[in-house]
Structure formats: structure tokens, C-alpha cells
């Protein structure tokens, strides 16, 4: 288990090794979530998908599978937000390096 901290104004994307990616899904009316970016179907980038503001569901841009909010939560790391400070617990060894960055656009956070 590895605990990471960042400020949501500075960062919104986490990469672990070559495959695992998480983005900060942040829609009004829903708690911000460190959402697993990899679509379980064929690995599409969920952060480039669309999301439903009311239900919080996200639709993958590749084959348009829609994941409900509870389904997204189940495959996303434990996350807490206090103000703009985000803490997330990743299910990886504590000494494993992770990269934090800021993506210019998280399409899934843009209003529909």
C-alpha cells in the first residue's frame, strides 16, 4: 500500500509503472475520485471519455461502455479530499515510484 498526497490545483494524474494510470474525476455533486483510467474492456483512457453529471457515470471513448459511479469506485483507490488536498491509497508496494502530473484537459470532467 502506498499513500500519496497532492493538491488538486496542481496535479490531477498519477502514473504507476507502465500500465496503471489514475485521474482525478471531479464532477459537481460527486466526491472527487482518483479514478482508474484504464478501461477494463480493452484499456481505453477513461479520462478522455464523457461523464454524466447527474449520475457520475463515465463512458469510455473507445467502444462507449458506460461505467456507473459505484463500478468506478470499486476499481479506484481509496481517496480523501480535504479542501484541495487529496490523499489516495494505491494498492502497490510503498517503495514503488509513482509520477504525478497535471493534464491540461480531463475531458471526463468537462460538463455535458
Amino acid at each position: 500500500m502506498k499513500v500519496i498526497h497532492f493538491d488538486s490545483r496542481d496535479q490531477n494524474f498519477v502514473t504507476v509503472g507502465d500500465h496503471e494510470r489514475y485521474f482525478l474525476l471531479d464532477r459537481p455533486g460527486h466526491a472527487p475520485l482518483m479514478c482508474n483510467d484504464t478501461c477494463p474492456h480493452r484499456g481505453g483512457p477513461l479520462h478522455l471519455g464523457t461523464s454524466d453529471e447527474r449520475t457520475g457515470a463515465v463512458t469510455c471513448p473507445w467502444h462507449e461502455t458506460t461505467y456507473t459511479r459505484p463500478a468506478l469506485e470499486r476499481r479506484s483507490p481509496a481517496t480523501v479530499r480535504v479542501g484541495t488536498r487529496i490523499t489516495a491509497v494505491l494498492d502497490i508496494p510503498a517503495d514503488m515510484p509513482v509520477t504525478l502530473d497535471r493534464k491540461q484537459r480531463i475531458l471526463a470532467n468537462e460538463c455535458l
Partner: peptide, 17 residues
């Protein structure tokens, strides 16, 4: 407003946190 909790919490992640 100030605090939100999300994601998949397990005893293991809680202990680490």
C-alpha cells in the same frame, strides 16, 4: 463541503492511510 471520501476502502488501505 470541506471533506469528501471516495474509492474502494478496505481495512488494508485504511490501515496504510
Amino acid at each position: 463541503d470541506e471533506i469528501t471520501v471516495s474509492g474502494n476502502w478496505t481495512l488494508e488501505s485504511f490501515r496504510a492511510y
